[in-house]
Amino acid sequence: MTSTTSKQSLSARIKRELNKNLLVYIVLIPVIIHFIIFQVYPFALSFYLTFHDWKIIGDPEFVGLKHWKNLFDDEIAWKAIWNTVKFSVYYILPTMALGLILALIINSGIKFSGFFKGLFFLPVVTSFVIIAGIWGWLFRGTEDGFINYLIGFVGIDPQLFLSSSSQALLVLAGLSIFKVAGTTMIYYYAGLQSIDRQLYEAARIDGANSWKMFWSVTFPMLKPIHFYVAITTTIGSFQIFDSAFLLTNGGPNYSTTTIVYYLYHQGFTSLNLSYAAVLSYVLFFIILIISLIQRKYIGKDPNYY
């Protein structure tokens, strides 16, 4: 009797819910189907693959933790993770700083600010392959490379740049900063526009100079933007692949082999898809943990006043 009542009440509840929100469910169905096919299924399948050997066609063969154990003996994988961490250090803060500086320039009311906005944003809309090609040409390691030619004027010896294991990653980070700073500029510019002008007036009345106003008003008020930009550039930095793929092929001597480059190589050149899946999970956990830390420390609601 009781169960019948609860059943009735359940079906009644479902009916009521449908009556109320049917349209919402209908609209959601395609999104959910898409999400399941393109997100949940690959995510689950790749986890399943980490415990199997898969020969592309045919059925995967169960091998237990073999691929996870391989990870611990694989020096190149650890080098790739370390390279990626180094890349993040070279990339995240400079991208944020450069984006903020560019945003301050176009927000300062200088003449032709629209022109500068377009100019600073140009690398973002240009194809990465083209930008990488130009970068490779600029930083050619021969004496007649453009940057080598320029630094020759101030008496610096020609540098190897992409052919040097100590410089190559820095040059690649420079390329990514150049490519992405325009995007962070737009976020910061939007943030700057939304800061209440009264705060600056109040600061001025209190006798603050521009420097003081920047650090006491502008910078803290941009906290949500800092958070968003930090998260996206961090994720971007851990997913860095294209520049290493286009300019160095991971060299010299693995110094620009990043985790995604290595993963790609394992999966699609060596056909070791299961090990590539393990690496992709490592990447996933790294990004997850860093995002959680960032949320804890800079993701809190800004304490405005």
């Binding site: 390691g141 020609p158 190897l160 052919s163």
Partner: peptide, 14 residues
């Protein structure tokens, strides 16, 4: 061979 031979992908321009 050119100094960038370590990682160069080609030397077409030279």
């Amino acid at each position: 061979i050119p100094q960038d031979s370590i990682t160069a992908l080609d030397h077409d321009s030279l």
